[in-house]
């Protein structure tokens, strides 16, 4: 690499920091405005009906990829999202959808997904789809998933993204939150996205 390309790298990095500072908001999560594409999806809901992003825009959407047989990350993250939501005012809570996208459609039938997501309360939406539908969605947000080998009981692990994507009510990508961040910090960011959109 030449010094010229080094300059480009530094320029790009500085550019990223400047755009981050430009917002004047010190987010707890990563600002992805203008970096990640708008909310767009074509999936199946827990009633087995085809849905698109149009069914969800108008409210803020928090998107998380996982699967219901997930032993740790998914239930923990969904529980964290529920707790973060509860720290907001009732009006704000009503303005948030949590879209849980199962990347394990073989086991997560709409009925199964409905039972699972129902336990997290109102505003939690279970979605899944065909492999083509899921692939096109994860590719759009530069994440992925994969399956492990089934054991003797036929159960298998699924690798998936642990990112929490936050889209504002108009569907613009705003934040990428990590599942490891404190609940208060997450609630704080969700509130500020609602207030700035």
């Amino acid at each position: 690499m030449s010094l010229g390309s080094l300059r480009i790298v530094l320029g790009l990095l500085i550019g990223i920091f400047i755009t981050a500072c430009d917002q004047e908001i010190d987010w707890n999560s990563t600002d992805i405005s203008g970096i990640m594409p708008d909310l767009s999806l074509a999936l199946v809901n827990t009633e087995g009906a085809q849905v698109t992003e149009k069914d969800f825009t108008g409210k803020m959407n928090v998107v998380f990829f996982g699967y219901t047989f997930c032993p740790d990350i998914c239930p923990a993250t969904l529980a964290k999202l529920r707790m973060a939501k509860r720290q907001l005012s009732p009006e704000q809570q009503a303005e948030i959808n949590v879209l849980f996208v199962s990347v394990d459609p073989d086991r997560d039938t709409p009925e199964h997904l409905k039972r699972y997501i129902g336990s997290f309360g109102p505003g939690f939406v279970g979605l899944t789809g065909t492999q083509e539908q899921l692939q096109s969605m994860v590719r759009r947000y530069r994440v992925t998933y994969g399956y492990g080998k089934p054991d003797e009981y036929g159960s298998y692990e699924v690798s998936h993204s642990s990112a929490i994507f936050v889209f504002d009510p108009t569907g613009n990508a705003r934040l990428l939150a990590k599942d490891t961040m404190p609940t208060e910090a997450l609630a704080d960011d969700l509130r500020r996205v609602l207030e700035t959109s």
Binding site: V143, T144, Y147, G148, H160, S162, A163, K178
Partner: peptide
């Protein structure tokens, strides 16, 4: 390097 957790791994490793 947590980006591989954030984006998901190609298979469960």
């Amino acid at each position: 390097f947590d980006v591989y957790d954030v984006c998901g791994r190609a298979w469960p490793l």
